[in-house]
Nucleic acid binder design. Structure first.
Lengths: 199, 199
DNA sequence: GTCTATATCTTGATAGAC
DNA sequence: GTCTATCAAGATATAGAC
């Protein structure tokens, strides 16, 4: 994305990326096989290596960056309409709780499980997840700053809200309950409120 | 633990559990091989199946429950001395940031990566992680309640603080930075402060 | 109980026919 | 470009000598 390189829109290729995204968020990176991805995509096994000569690592990186951009769009669409940053944050968490249940407790965040797996084992993929997280934090920081949070505190506030959401997804998946995400919504509102008050 | 069943204190067995704990927190459950664990434990491969006839799943479950109990002890020791719950929370996050760096950004939480991997793929292990998270939340909830947080809000507050910590570990590992954890400390203090004020 | 060798399966990846 | 067959290496797990 960052270098503006054109990405093929070939339909088979797109199905492979989509299948990879869905499987990675449920079974993780090491827990998902290339054959499994090919089957889920309805594509012959060889096609994966035709479109991704770099193999699993290349596919993994593209899944991370693509779904990261999609997710940024979702967060933007969900929060942008609100003038009240506290209400926007609380409602976003409520929506996230709904998504968690709809996915039958697969991870609503498409890169979280992979991020944990690769953080200490694959430098290229670790960097990709880091850049995606950063893009979300930067958007939210600007959003909060525009809403009245002091510039110096905006990034810390945004990072904490993202962390709270990711952690709540983790607890909610483990417990197969939306309760941790709903509770986190209350806490997120408190974080934003405190930041707006300048502590 | 919960059923009081005696656990062997055989030294080889202990080394296997310890090696599994260290490898799982860096490479995850599916990303770690049994041979790798045996080698790291300095134990012959066959010993793993001698002590864990249930194979990888049995070892995984014991690692989760054992390290969960150890971690509960750490959290207790870290927070119990404080009268001021806000200060206790802030200092615990500061300590966690230090641990993250000391581990060279392996996960300070020994079960988080595994929890994400197994949530949708292994029901027995998912339940084990859920019970461990719950034990932490229950301790913290009682701790906050005793410090003046209304009973009705104590569990939500505790869950949110744990979620915030876990999410901050995730972002910190991805970025190879302690900054997300330090920022989360400020936010966690705000959450506890708001709960003490009854919102 | 310790340790080695091996069975069986699955993985990521490649070669080559069509 | 599509698809199949196959590779070498890894996995989990087992058998059995000592």
């Amino acid at each position: 994305m960052s270098d503006g390189k054109a990405i093929s829109t070939h339909e088979t290729r797109q199905r492979i990326v989509k299948a990879g995204t869905e499987l990675f968020r449920r079974s993780g990176y090491t827990g998902t096989g290339m054959k499994q991805i090919a089957e889920a995509a309805g594509a012959p096994f060889g096609s994966i290596y035709h479109f991704f000569p770099g193999g699993k690592a290349q596919l993994g990186e593209e899944v991370i960056r693509t779904s990261g951009a999609v997710y940024l769009g979702l967060v933007t669409a969900l929060t942008a309409p609100y003038e009240d940053r506290v209400a926007a944050t609380a409602d976003a968490f409520a929506a996230a709780a709904g998504t968690l249940a709809e996915l039958d407790f697969a991870d609503p965040c498409p890169i979280a499980t992979v991020a944990m797996e690769v953080a200490s084992t694959n430098e290229a993929l670790r960097q990709a997840t880091s850049e995606v997280f950063d893009s979300w934090i930067e958007y939210l920081a600007a959003y909060y700053a525009q809403g009245g949070v002091p510039e110096s505190a905006a990034r810390e506030t945004a990072g904490s809200v993202i962390a709270l959401l990711e952690g709540a997804f983790m607890l909610g998946r483990a417990a197969r309950s939306t309760e941790p995400v709903r509770a986190a919504g209350t806490a997120a509102a408190a974080i934003v409120r405190a930041a707006l008050a300048g502590q």
